[in-house]
Design a protein around this nucleic acid. Sequence first.
DNA 1: ATGTCTACTGATAGTAGA
Length: 257
Amino acid sequence: MRIATWNINGLKARLDFVRLWLETRQPDIVGLQELKTQEEAFPHDVFEDLGYHALVHGQKAWNGVAILSRQPGELLHKGLAGQDGFGARLISARFDDLVFETVYCPNGKTLEHDDFPRKLAWFDDLAEHWRTHHDPDQPTVLCGDFNIAPAALDSWRGADGDGSLFHTAEERRRFDALLALGMHDLYRAHHPDGNAFSWWDYRGGAFHRGHGLRIDMLLGTSAVRDRVEAVEIDREFRKKQDGLTASDHAPVYADLR
DNA sequence: ATGTCTACTGATAGTAGA
């Protein structure tokens, strides 16, 4: 079984690109972030034609998350309790042998912006949501765009980035708190020294200069980690395909036994 | 080194957000 996470930066603008990726990689369950689409406008027919069911939590213009799956899932959660004002950022579903949750974590904007403390509080609520609703002894996935580079190895700036947005001790403490609830970073578990990134700014030729961050994660409980055969950051699909513009994020996928 | 992309709007160029 292949599971994946991908911040697509706008579903309407990315639809043909997403279709190409689904046809090429054939994932079974995908968490999508940054739909920037209202639920009423979600093109269910397009995904049905490709063989996917979709559960959607959308809003106008910004944010928005969805789960695509070969088999229908049972909706568990739409939105993070108490955080509705911060946008449509969480959706989860139960599949036969797996609980799958995907999140679009707040960016924070700058260290001085009000959104930065709100970002930290959002992570605190996410951890509380996990303690309340999920079981570390069950096969469970938490994936998405975390907007945190957990360690120096996850940033093109290395330790020089420490203290800047995505690299602060406060953000990294929040990420580590999720791991402490019984989650494992599947890419890092499989590639202990891997220096691959999942996001590159559109500006300044960042992709070609290698100026990236690893902020898109597949986290899994021990039962998931023990089934992992491969974890890949799909860098090829951060590039233009057939003249179609890529998202600023690459898909990340894992193959489970 | 800020050179892009997306979606929105008393739209048709400019702004906000990432």
